[in-house]
Amino acid sequence: MLNLLILIAVVLGIIALSKVVKVLEQASTVKGVQPYEVTERDNKTQANLMPVFLVLYFAFIVWQLVAWGDFMLPEAASEHGVVVDGLMNTTWIIIIPVFVITHILLFYFAWKYVYNKDRKAEYFPHNNKLEILWTAIPALVLLILILYGLSIWNETMKPLTAEDDPVEIEIYARQFDWTARYPGEDGKFGKADVKLIGGVNSLGMDSTDQNSWDDKLVKAEFVIPVNRPVQFYFRSQDVIHSAYMPHFRAQMNCVPGMVTRFNFVPTKTTEEMRDITGDPEFYYQLLCNKICGAAHYNMGMEITVVSEEDYEEWLAEQKVFMTVEGNTSAANETTTETEEEKNEQLSSL
């Protein structure tokens, strides 16, 4: 019923509008002006609206900056993030004046050079000097930005070496949750294969690979130490996901069939960030940032940054995933099973 009423209202509106337009067009014809001819008054009105719009547009932008400025991401919590933010600020410093100046020129010219029947436009088809000038200047500015940007990019993407003594974590994505895997005391991740996925073995970890025996898995939240490089390995089980850690200025896609990498050095613990943001509930967030299905919008994991000691303590408390022979973790009972039994146990999981 409501829909019908809306429909009727729309139809009546269209009819009314047609009548109004018709009357106005006839009125103009009576005055001896074709209704489509742009009159002096039209030109004046539109030209005057130009600066009005520009002021409104700038005011809207300033209002947004004031109203929402505090909602933006807080200062970067990683070493490279600070550098990236510096590049971002430099880029803004270049972009904003260009934006403001070109807009002022555009709307000023649009206002100033409105039609006047007593004036003729300037015949100014080209000027090589000007054109070379405004090809060369953007080229120069961009060259600087490119070189500056690439130096940061190369530094950010540089692989870590053993000397950096990184914490290694595998971030494993699937519809619609994350799992973080720590390699355990041997420092090596066990092999995994999608064909072994089943039951709770959601990563398809291979129990025949000794490296996997002390691997630790965590969900919902993972912990990293402050001021130590973290080497992330990303994998996906089903579709492409993207591990986005905005507070650290870090992002990498998780692609089924391959392992992708990213590393950064966290510089602020969660506690420190709570002080900085003034939000006692603040925590770092890992988000999925590549469309992955219906619950894409709800696929996250919390990240906690703590001191090195707290990290070691936390890690020691985590249980290893496989309770199988050869397990070096004190948290698990040592059992004496054969390879076959282990596999059986896994497949029954």
Binding site: Q46, A47, F109, A110, Y113, K120, A121, E122, F124
Partner: peptide, 8 residues
């Protein structure tokens, strides 16, 4: 646009 004679 500069020094044009703009018809809107």
């Amino acid at each position: 646009l500069w020094k044009g004679n703009i018809i809107y």
